[in-house]
Nucleic acid binder design. Structure first.
Lengths: 243, 243
DNA sequence: GAGAAACTGTGTCTGGTGGACACTGTTGAT
DNA sequence: ATCAACAGTGTCCACCAGACACAGTTTCTC
């Protein structure tokens, strides 16, 4: 069937991300290793975007031909998966769990947001079907463990983590669209305002909301708003459970 | 220098998406139009995924050479933007605003989710920098207008819309990863469970959560959970504002 | 030691992509 | 009738991911 192709691709990705990687007994010494390859890819993506990441480019960066890369990585998709997990994880051990679940999740979300800000390409690299690596899972672990003892079920704890990461991604994407300079809200408002000038009558509610928002230029308004709403919602449920 | 290139690209996209498109006075009749092109692209993407969308493919679908497409669309990015806005909008007029803000937002989010289910490729097509078209804005308009009169500021109403759409995207992506068959939770649990078997000791909280979640096989658990949490959070704020 | 086996990196090739450009043919305004 | 504007085509380029055969290097086995 055509369904076993994605499966074997996924299996290859799992092998690559989760190891083990026994070093060969015979033959010439490998000049590269997965960590170096991932680092090179991340560096290129950080600096020039994911579009610049090609087999040739990364190989050149490492001083080999592109075909040499295929000795380490089955294909470009797996390369990117390696880069993603390298860029994401593991969850920094310096951020020890401190405070209640709310404070912990707040710190967790902030850390994830900073991470996406540092590696904007990770957003586009994590759409679609993919295999989670150890790094990504360690973040998941941290979020779920922050909710231990809150009375939420296991599924609910994981759903909460997914919910938070969704918000992080949404904000990171908005920030990315605005570019490194200038706050997203202002930029979004500017382009929207332009469109409203010519097509405003079709979007009365938006026009009104935009006019009302024109004054406030709070930097991270959308971030704090969404995060607080989610945490409030979780608090409501947790309170109900514990009563 | 290099910063005006994205700007002019964005301007081209705005022209394309927002018109106007005056029909030429002289010359041969165009055999195509933007709507037909968008429809062809959407059809291909729906059926075979975004990767199958190439200039050649779409042109062949329309019975012309690929270069003819460039008479209508400045490049592939703009083609995809056209497809996205065509697939998304406008917000269906049949879904009249009914009920309180909560019910309206619930219906809105559900509608958006169904849309992403119908056009899974729209997820990958809407990461990164992009220009919103009329269709996308009409959805935004609907969500913002649902929050009219709740006491929220304009910026907050828009932030709420962004928050909800973030959750929709997160769920849609998870559903997409699981494929059309089988519910996402089970599939996620299966692959996670496999990894836990070999690396479980590194992720104790996840292992516990997974074990606890093994029994419940609720289909749309994550969807309802996140949506309810967000709406609860909004309700908390709205209540506070109105007191 | 000698040879074989395993392995690495390279060169070459293919089919595909987005896009530039010059060209022919068509159409309506003058 | 002429001409300028426009549409669709054919040809070209650079780049991409990947397949494959090959030569060179290392280590294990006899």
């Amino acid at each position: 069937m055509s369904d076993d192709k994605p499966d074997e691709a996924a299996a290859a990705a799992v092998r690559l991300l989760w190891g083990p990687h026994p070093k060969p007994a015979r033959g010439p010494r490998p000049t590269l290793d997965l960590a170096r390859i991932a680092r090179a890819g991340i560096a290129v993506a950080d600096e020039s975007g994911l579009a610049e990441v090609s087999m040739q480019r990364i190989a050149a960066e490492l001083g080999v031909t592109k075909m040499a890369l295929y000795r380490y990585v089955p294909g470009k998709a797996e390369l990117v998966a390696l880069m993603v997990d390298g860029a994401i994880g593991p969850y920094p051990a310096s951020d020890e769990p401190v405070g209640d679940w709310r404070g912990q999740l707040h710190a967790w979300a902030r850390g994830l947001l900073l991470l996406f800000r540092r590696h904007p390409w990770a957003l586009e690299a994590t759409v679609g079907l993919r295999v989670m690596g150890p790094g990504e899972l360690s973040w998941m672990e941290r979020a779920v463990s922050a909710l231990d003892g809150t009375g939420l079920t296991g599924a609910e704890r994981m759903d909460a983590a997914l919910l938070l990461s969704g918000h992080v991604r949404a904000i990171a994407q908005q920030a990315r669209a605005a570019g490194p300079a200038g706050n997203p809200e202002a930029q979004l408002g500017a382009v929207l305002g332009e469109l409203m000038q010519t097509h405003g009558e079709q979007f009365p509610a938006l026009t009104a909301a935009l006019a009302s928002a024109a004054g406030s230029a709070d930097q991270d308004q959308a971030w704090d708003f969404g995060l607080d709403r989610i945490l409030d919602g979780l608090a409501t449920l947790i309170d109900a459970r514990n009563r």
